[in-house]
Design a protein around this nucleic acid. Structure first.
Lengths: 292, 292
DNA sequence: TATCCATCATAGACACCATCTATGGTTTTC
DNA sequence: GAAAACCATAGATGGTGTCTATGATGGATA
């Protein structure tokens, strides 16, 4: 059965023990004397024992109070240890960074690797997520930063970064591999691989239906790497952000498909601890420049 | 610096860890789910770290939460130990008894000694005091019982005991040592010793002034034993309750001085712990009979 | 002996808080 | 697509922690 004593009342108790009277104990605990007096009374009710023998001008511990004193000190000590354990673990600077899952791991990896060369002591905790997931985590402070799509333009919580277009990629030996531009109609007989987590899935669908083209869906996956691998293997084409392109595939521009996304570095929603502020500022400056 | 976390929030935290979700944790902690959710949020604010990673249907400890968990358990453990230390110490029955300081230590000692022969395991904590001091201690529960003067007649907080008169005592070889009754006038030339803590000091004074008698005050003391010793030594006479009389002195009755006091056993102002109830009841019965 | 001082206890006022119910938002399951 | 499970938020409300004002008491001092 968990005892129901309150920590703040233990502080009052220890203040009385250390000062010898309620008035000075109240000063030490930063409350008024009646507050402390009532607090001691409440603690005694909580534990069911009288802890102090009061007389005018003098306060003494009762037998119960004497037995209670080392235990009260142990409780306060454990509370301090608990806080310390939490605080110490954040003293080596760790930046908790969310990355939109459709961002290229390769380009983000290069970004972070180059930053670590500038600041070798930094550590990153990386989490992938959707736009919404990253937003939620920023909000509940389980992330410090996020690299994601900046849709709002609000400048106080996000640093604007580069824009990148969405492009259509096809296998290297595709019949249009020599072309750089195609029309939707050109793809009417082609196979389409669907990246189910693509941010512009509905816009892409509309692009084709507006042109009376219905590509054949041959494969669906939430895994971007798998999708690109299937394109490289010749199963079909897909729409990806430019940064996901590598040399296993060929890029063609779709006429009239001018979708692009604006990336942003989302900033912390709370005051960073002192030991992280410095390196966080450096990170913001570095990313702003590297992905301008 | 003392951390400001609250014990009841630690209970919520541990309930979440043990159940795996907020809803069942709330049931275990006997609060509603929104209360527990807000409580976890408050704990995280108090310690400055996010302790749980929430997703729909699942809650996981963060790194900070993982580090915090053994510390939280240690705090709760220490609280339980503190309560246990207080509670265990009251398991051998101790009766905390206040005794009016003008009661005869000898007669009270005999009373208690005889009771201990009936109940050898009982222990007494004895405290002397004035009527008001004893009343205060009963009120603040630092005393269980008090043997004092019963002035009020209220039966639910006090058991009526014997009455005893106040008598005038003189040295054994006093010129009135052969008499059993004297008038105030007879004492006009005599010396008076004053017991400063006598309950009937003002009534005694009035008794003499009403009879135009002003005994000479020769000695004042709050110490009854000292007063009686001075009487025995021949310094003068004094007024005492009958029970303080011993064979070192001679009692004379003052004409018209019929003051007496009604003794009472004042009962506890709170529910005694279970292990004390039994012996306390026995004590009440014993004293009621012995001092009827 | 009367007055003053130091100290604890109580009373009433009040802003804040812990908890409730109601409900929203999201994800998973069927 | 609907239902279920679960966390988060909003508003209402009784309870609480703290304040100021003041009472009660005993010791010190004049």
């Amino acid at each position: 059965m968990v005892s129901m004593m309150d920590i703040y009342l233990l502080r009052y108790f220890l203040a009385v023990v250390e000062t010898g009277n309620f008035t000075r104990a109240a000063e030490r605990a930063f409350v008024t004397q009646p507050t402390l007096s009532a607090g001691i009374k409440k603690l005694e009710q909580q534990v069911g024992h009288v802890l102090f023998e009061r007389s005018n001008r003098r306060v003494f511990l009762t037998d119960a109070g004497t037995r209670f004193l080392p235990r009260a000190r142990a409780i306060i000590h454990e509370c301090n240890v608990a806080q310390q354990v939490l605080d110490e673990a954040t003293q080596t600077p760790v930046i908790r960074l969310g990355i939109l899952h459709t961002l290229s791991n390769r380009t983000v990896g290069m970004l972070l690797e180059q930053f670590r060369q500038l600041r070798p002591t930094v550590a990153f905790e990386i989490v992938d997520g959707t736009e919404q997931e990253l937003e939620n985590r920023l909000e509940d402070r389980s992330l410090d930063f996020a690299l994601s799509i900046n849709r709002s333009g609000a400048m106080d919580t996000v640093v604007n970064l580069r824009s990148e277009p969405y492009v259509f990629i096809v296998p290297k030996h595709h019949r249009y591999a020599e072309r750089t531009r195609v029309s939707a109609v050109d793809l009417a007989e082609d196979y389409m691989i669907v990246r189910t987590r693509c941010e512009v899935l509905s816009e892409t669908s509309r692009y084709f239906t507006d042109r009376n083209v219905r590509p054949r869906l041959v494969y669906r996956t939430p895994n971007d790497s798998r999708a690109i691998a299937m394109v490289a293997a010749g199963l079909g084409g897909t729409v990806v952000p430019q940064s996901l392109v590598d040399d296993r595939v060929h890029v063609v521009r779709l006429n009239g498909f001018d979708l692009e996304r604006h990336l942003g570095l989302f900033l912390p929603r709370y005051e960073l601890p002192l030991e992280t502020k410095d390196i966080a500022q450096a990170f913001v400056e570095y990313v702003s420049e590297a992905w301008a």
